[in-house]
């Protein structure tokens, strides 16, 4: 899991790429992000690097978080250089 919430483009993709480089093929990696460019750029990165995109879903704010809520966070999941994984329920 890579927490890139609050980071602007291209940092979410860079953090995700660093995690993917350290992972063995077939590893499932999820990135949390708030930057709107990541919606397009994480799938584009996965395509360019032959990783498999599983999907994107809204991230629920953790219950222990206090204060005003920030921008909507999202989670995008990829499989490192692997075949498509079964989508999460």
């Amino acid at each position: 899991m890579v927490d890139a919430r609050g980071l602007a483009c291209p940092l979410p993709v860079i953090r995700l790429a660093a995690a993917a480089r350290a992972a063995t093929p077939g590893t499932v990696v999820t990135v949390w992000w708030t930057d709107p460019a990541a919606r397009h750029d994480v799938p584009a990165w996965a395509r360019m690097r032959s990783h498999t995109l599983v999907g994107t879903c809204p991230l629920e704010q953790p219950a222990d978080r206090t204060g005003p809520s920030g921008p909507q966070a999202w989670a995008t999941t990829v499989v490192v250089e692997g075949p498509p994984a079964a989508p999460p329920d």
Binding site: P10, A37, H40, D41, W45
Partner: peptide, 9 residues
């Protein structure tokens, strides 16, 4: 770029 599904950064 977003609508085309290409890298935007």
């Amino acid at each position: 770029l977003g609508a085309m599904g290409t890298l935007t950064h």
